[in-house]
Design a protein around this nucleic acid. Sequence first.
DNA 1: CTAGGGTTAG
Length: 592
Amino acid sequence: MEPTGPPPPVEHSPIYQSLVGAGPRLRPLRQVHARMVVSGLHRSRSLLTKLLTLVIKTGPSGGAAAAYAGLLLHSVPNPDGFLFNSLIRVSSRSGDPLAALRLYRHMRQATLARCNYTFTSAVKACADLAALPTGREIHCHLLLDGLAGDVYVQTALVALYGKCGDLPAARAVFDGMPRRSLVTWNAMIAAYEQNGLAGEAVVVFRAMQADAAVEPDGATMVSLLAACAHLGDLRLGQWASSYIATKHLPVGAALAGALVSMYARCGCVDEAREVFDGLRRPNVVAWTAMISGYGMHGRGAEAVALFRMMSRRGPRPNTVTFVAVLAACAHAGLVVDGREAFESMQRDYGLLPREEHLVCMVDMLGRAGHLEEAFRFVRTAAAPPVAGAAMWTALVGACKLHRRFELGVEAAERLVAMESENAGNYVLLSNLCAMAGRTEAVEAARGEMARRGLRKVAGYSAVEVGGTAHVFRMGERRHPQAAEIYRFLEELEGRMREVGYSPETATVMHEVEEEEREIALRHHSEKLAVAFGIMSTAGGTAVRVVKNLRICGDCHAAVKLMSAVARREIIVRDKHRFHHFQGGSCSCGDFW
DNA sequence: CTAGGGTTAG
């Protein structure tokens, strides 16, 4: 029988129908592929294309789909740009951004036409790799291809530069956009937030609210809540909370974690717990946020209890979880629990301790007064590849706390030797020398610092009252109401000491037996509550305080104070993250 | 027929 007319469309062939029937599922597709090979149809361009698009649709599957799709691509004669675009996308989605970039380069070599789809995926692959030079190169390519005006591409660029920490570049792309989508705004807000510029993130969010073309969604709220958490801005955090409720935004894992973290960091630990308890299956982030929330409010026992619960019937803890647990133990003096967690981390979870875990251990041992053990710990752990400067900084802090100034000088000298270009280390050393009464060494440290042309980076705290920022720099009292404010803070400290709270009592508490510890802690908390009761009347002046939590001598007290302030719905703004964390560049005592 | 944004620590 002679064929009449054009050949029947491939869509009617049984094997094509089998492909469609298989759907975007890898296994069935492979079976149909096998049949194609058997029946000699494995070179059919249209069938292969259909197969490939279906494989791409299967989404991430541990890279299997990407590998398979790559294989198929090579059997398609003259694959077109569309297939490449899809493949680049599926590669980066299945966690192989390097493969995505290889495909992108192959595409250029083969002079296949690139389009906006190509670049959004290629730029995203760079973002996933945090590959700034490659990202810049591709940015150049897309400029040459005349695709720099596409909103999708531009948004991907904002995200890329954000992820790589090049905020000026992110902002330049953002500012150059005549039209911005919801995702663009979200990318810009996230870029600031992820780089420690939470205040800027909020500023951009405000600008976004003025853009009638977009309406904030869940992703906006995730970044906004993170910013609130870092700023201690309970007010705005609560607003975001009710926005989520009003707009019926689905509370997925990311929003849940951000909410728990916001409440915890803003001082509403119990509120955070309520959110946490309302989650159907909290993920590792939510658990970690909750544990750290307890820890930063000195509720170490609850942090440890929650961690134990997590180990029994929660998701697998990760390295961040262990930082939270260890920091909680350090702040609450729970040395036994801290040691146990540190060992469990390696033994039960196969996680190698990173420098931050070691720092927590040193901090914990040091605060608890086990200085010799802390020194031993540092000497054994501080071998390459762990540099250990941060551990020595923690040791210096512990020596100061326990007034072991000679030992502190030793640690600070070590620190200076390790990081001789860090101005903060010289300041630390000279302070320690002064405390140890070694006047000539003070001069030597300052002289060496000057000789190297290093300048002291002044730490500062900022407070915000009614939308105005008030800045307090180390060693200066320029604020017009400085006298009043410092009098208030001194009074606060005095009252706290009066009811028994001081770094020293915290230290004594570390020494009590384990069974007594809980009682001691509870007692301790009651005293604190009294102290804060006093504050709540004195705080009528609505002073808004920010503590430098990282470097100050007594994080525990600072966080307690901060949370008390936050509970009174006072905005606490932590500008600390705007600055370089130069170990010890500002010492304790800026507020008390 | 394909594309861009999100959470946890110190």
